[in-house]
Design a protein around this nucleic acid. Structure first.
Lengths: 359, 359
DNA sequence: CCACTTTGCTCAATCGATGAAGCAAGAATT
DNA sequence: AATTCTTGCTTCATCGATTGAGCAAAGTGG
């Protein structure tokens, strides 16, 4: 060791002088087009071996500066605290890598300001394409992207300026609502309107789910009032508080509930345990989203699982086909089957199947 | 629009010619050290305005190529399918940004090969520091990093070549085991050995937890046999299968269980529902890790929550202090309190408090 | 033996941002 | 008036990889 510390990383110039050749040859060998550049296989081998020995790693900053495309694909995502976004991210990384892209992901905690900053940072890193997942203002991000000549796609929540891939929230909610109503009838022998709780009234998905919710009620001839619709936000404590306030206003909450996300379900379950009807087993619940433990809670909880594999497949199809028109592709979510067998790996398998059939 | 498409992004050269000045001045203004470089505030303002108008974003690839440090901090993480890693990632991003670093995270699905590839890619992107979270072979990654002159730190699972921040698995497991044993005695009026299930026998955390598990048994004068220890892996179906096999071998599984992760708990709960003792409410469970819905399952489930905020605080302290010696910092996990009130936001608050007191 | 092709490389410009060095014009000092 | 200092810039080399252009040597055909 002549140097106190490996101060500088190995570059192609170091390898070139070690191999007694030029940086240009080293570059050609290491990025695989040495045949086009007519480098002899002996030299190629020598360089490859040296690179290995020296633990050489391409300086992407330098490489990308020169290249036309970065092959970096960015994604912003609201939270990592539920299975839906978790599986989106995990699968996105996987699919991106399988396509030779480098995924970078940033969590923006549903903070509009952070979303913008994150998008700007991603543009700085020269992403070729940016996916806005569940963004509060996807169009703003699309504008920033197109100003920089970068494609963008909306996932989970749609925008009007870029193509979007979302769940079929209306149909999913209609079907789920119908199931909950039927469960109520079967288990509680009553046919009362359900309570819709969670989500933001201002977001497209929540609005569509409320529309499906109303539709199912009217199809089954159950009338609902405004007090039954509580899009109180996503955080658990917001759902909890909304239920408390409902009770404080003298309304006795419905025994059937449509919960708009697993995160809201957390709050609902806590409220039920703390302040709910005496026998909280008498509450019938449906949730638009899936969680393996929620599926095991004593209550018969119907859960709709969004079809993440199919959604991401559609999304990558759009990227590959160069789609730029602001179409909205709706992917049907996976409904629980008759036995309510939508738990964990079964669910995964089902999603897999659904995706194959969709593709 | 004279151009068919914004083909190229705005660069400092574009801004320079628009402002009738030099690229150097633009650069100085935009990276904030225009005072040192004695640029007039008029010119600074003009350039800033133009940059805004043109939607300019620094080309990080170019910038980083020139700069000494990248201010990029990388993290590899096994999975996004549980709250523990989810909160690690979310908080890591947050803390990194608060320190002016750019976090990039990659999920390696507990795949040793993918871990190595991910580490190499991160080195290519010139990370200043790489965090290996729950890596199967952290020392290998440390070696790669130090060959490139990059720091690395292990999180969750320790290594021998770089500093590590982990939970105090031994004490946590000892305490948890003791609680489960006491719960068994109280609820089932029996004092039998527990079943340890989940995790990899080869990983340090599992080994330490087994050690704590044994210790607590011996302290309470309960003897345990080898058949009570089942480190069958993390996936839910592995736990499920292990329990099936146990029964197939004619062993009747203990009514008290120490489950090594929420992911394994998923499998255990499914097995209990499918093939467990008739009244599965008679099973007493403790889990090393926390999940809000698992906390609400009918069984009295004790959950130890790893102190993510404190762990990450320690980790960033190490980064800032330039620690390179392979010390192992153990952070006590948060034990459930007497009322078992370790659910969701309360838990968050508690973690917050624990972290403040720790710091 | 000469013209021409092929092989196997090297040279040098380039990507965009950065910052040390330098320079011209005006202000301050002697 | 001559000198020095300050202000407000510009010039240019540089980071490491890439790639079009070019060039010498070896091979081929007539």
């Amino acid at each position: 060791m002549t140097r106190s510390k490996q101060a500088r990383r190995t570059t192609i110039y170091d390898l070139a002088s070690l191999a007694g050749t030029s940086a240009s040859a080293v570059s050609a060998v290491l990025n695989g087009n040495w045949k086009k550049r007519r480098i002899s296989s002996q030299l190629a081998e020598k360089i490859t071996r040296l690179a290995e020995e020296q633990g050489y790693a391409t300086n992407m900053q330098a490489s990308l500066l020169r290249r036309e495309k970065s092959h970096i694909i960015g994604m912003i995502v609201p939270k990592y605290d539920n299975r839906y976004f978790g599986s989106i991210v995990e699968r996105f990384e996987d699919m991106a890598r399988a396509r030779g892209l480098f995924p970078i992901i940033t969590c923006t905690r549903r903070d509009p300001q952070l979303e913008i900053e994150a998008a700007r940072t991603m543009l700085s890193y020269q992403v070729d394409c940016l996916i806005s997942t569940g963004a509060t203002d996807p169009d703003r991000i699309t504008e920033m992207c197109s100003a920089a000549g970068v494609r963008s796609i909306n996932l989970d929540l749609p925008g009007t300026l870029a193509p979007s891939v979302i769940s079929d929230n209306f149909e999913g909610a209609r079907e789920l609502t119908r199931k909950i109503l039927l469960n109520c009838e079967r288990q509680l022998h009553e046919k009362n309107p359900l309570l819709f709780i969670g989500g933001r009234g201002s977001d497209h998905n929540t609005a569509e789910r409320i529309r499906g919710f109303r539709q199912a009620h009217s199809e089954l001839n159950v009338s609902i009032g405004e007090e039954n619709i509580l899009p109180c936000g996503y955080a658990p404590e917001k759902a909890e508080k909304a239920l408390d306030e409902l009770v404080a206003r003298g309304v006795s909450p419905a025994k059937g509930m449509f919960v708009n996300s697993t995160i809201s379900l957390e709050g609902v379950m806590r409220w039920l345990r703390r302040a709910g009807p005496i026998d909280s087993q008498d509450v019938v619940i449906g949730c638009f989203d899936w969680d393996p433990f929620a599926a095991l809670l004593g209550h018969h909880i119907e859960m709709v699982r969004q079809n993440v594999p199919a959604m991401l497949e559609k999304m990558f199809e759009m990227i590959e086909s160069g789609q730029t028109k602001p179409v909205v592709v709706q992917v049907p979510p996976i409904m629980p089957d008759e036995e309510g067998l939508l738990i964990s790996r079964e669910g995964e398998l089902k999603a897999e199947t659904a995706y194959r059939n969709a593709g």
